[in-house]
Simulated assay, not measured.
Amino acid sequence: MKAKAVLFDLFETLVTEFSDGKRISNRNYDYLELLGLPNEDFKKEWRIRSKARMTGIFPDYPSTIRDILIKRELNCKEESIKFLYEERMREKEIPFREIQPEIIDLLSFLKSKKVSLGLVSNCTEEEVRLWKDSGISKYFDVAIFSYEVGYAKPDERIYKLACHQLKVEPRESIFVGDGGSDELTGAYNIGLTPIQATWFNSYIESNFTKAADPLTLKEMLKDI
């Protein structure tokens, strides 16, 4: 499989927030006690703001919480907001603490092939605080974070921006991701060759080529 560049998704592709199908971190917060909003109502409001969070309309976690509380005509309890923000930042550090050796091996192999590597991630600022200090950032020539650029997968602009910065055409590039946010279809629609990474997340259905583990992907790309 020939290509000049490989673009990767981040969460559930290079790092994971889950183990044995369960989230690693503990999210047993009582939002009714902390914010005055029942847990299910909070989750609903959080989901409604997903795109706005990912595209930087809400610049950080506290601004999202304040917007929820204002729309619900509730008092902004700053101590509770600060507590939840600090807890979320600790939670988002977890995936970067122990990068799987197979991931490091894959990235190292691709760099040895002189292939350009790009990261394209739908994320918010607190989710990638440890990116630069992680064991994998050094392998990447370009890292595109949705909250910084103002658009998120599957918006074609985010893939095009990555390709532009890598100085390659989409048709010369491969995109690897677990398939969340319809990212594989988005990549395919602008000419990238999608490969679905199923080693962390095998629950998303697609008709694209699949790689069951990083070693399999390495073998698929051996002649890149």
Rank of each mutant, 00 (worst) to 15 (best):
T13V: 00
T13Q: 04
T16V: 03
T16H: 09
E17N: 13
E17P: 01
F18D: 10
F18K: 15
S19Y: 07
S19C: 03
D20A: 11
D20P: 03
D20R: 11
G21K: 15
K22R: 15
S25C: 07
R27V: 00
N28K: 15
N28M: 08
E33L: 10
L34S: 14
G36D: 11
P38C: 13
P38K: 14
P38D: 14
D41P: 01
F42I: 04
K43C: 03
K43F: 10
K43M: 08
K44L: 14
W46R: 15
W46N: 15
W46L: 13
S50Y: 14
S50C: 06
S50F: 07
K51H: 12
A52W: 09
M54E: 15
I57W: 06
I57D: 13
P59A: 07
D60A: 11
Y61W: 12
T64P: 04
I65W: 09
R66Y: 01
R66D: 03
R66F: 00
R66T: 02
D67A: 14
I68V: 09
L69N: 10
L69E: 05
L69Q: 08
E73G: 07
E73V: 05
N75D: 06
N75V: 01
K77P: 01
E78M: 13
E79F: 01
E79D: 14
E79M: 02
I81V: 09
I81T: 04
F83S: 12
L84V: 02
Y85A: 02
E86R: 00
E87C: 06
E87M: 08
R88H: 02
R88F: 01
E91T: 11
E91K: 06
K92R: 13
I94E: 13
P95L: 05
F96W: 09
F96C: 10
F96L: 07
R97K: 09
R97Q: 08
E98C: 04
E98T: 05
I99D: 08
Q100D: 13
E102Y: 03
D105L: 02
L106A: 05
L107W: 08
S108H: 04
S108M: 03
F109L: 05
F109D: 04
L110E: 02
S112T: 02
S112Y: 00
K114L: 01
V115M: 03
S116E: 06
L117Y: 12
G118V: 09
L119P: 07
L119C: 05
S121N: 11
S121L: 05
N122H: 09
N122P: 03
N122R: 10
N122T: 05
